[in-house]
């Protein structure tokens, strides 16, 4: 259940950044990028964000989770494809040892503030 500590980190991060933005009434939207191999359950994260945002500037924010996919490259036939697990095999020739890139992202892309 590390999603709760991640949700709290997201709320803290946006709160900290929003204080640098002047007279902020509230935060209405937060865009979070989550890679499919980041080890994060999106449903859980959404649930935790709602709880973590309570009584903060983000209380009414709409959390937009943007899922991103890892990319694999086959060591044998060099095909490129989206990868759904760390145990990927090439979807073209079936070879193992696929080189995986990306999919580990877990970042706040942007947020929308409502200024007074």
């Amino acid at each position: 259940m590390h999603e709760m500590s991640l949700a709290m980190s997201i709320v803290d991060l946006v709160m900290e950044q929003s204080t640098r933005e002047g007279e902020v009434d509230r935060v209405s939207e937060v865009e979070v990028e989550v890679g499919n191999l980041a080890g994060v359950l999106i449903d859980s994260l959404e649930f935790c964000l709602e709880a973590a945002a309570r009584s903060t500037l983000l209380e009414e924010a709409n959390f937009k989770i943007i899922p991103t996919m890892a990319q694999g490259e086959c060591p044998s036939c060099r095909a490129s494809f989206e990868v759904a697990s760390l145990y990927a095999v090439c979807c073209h020739c079936g070879a193992a040892g696929v080189t995986i890139s990306g999919g580990q992202e877990l970042k706040v892309r942007s947020f929308v503030i409502e200024e007074k």
């Binding site: 946006v14 950044q17 933005e21 942007s110 200024e115």
Partner: peptide, 8 residues
């Protein structure tokens, strides 16, 4: 509204 880019 104003969007703040973060990428953190």
């Amino acid at each position: 509204s104003r969007t703040v880019q973060l990428e953190i």
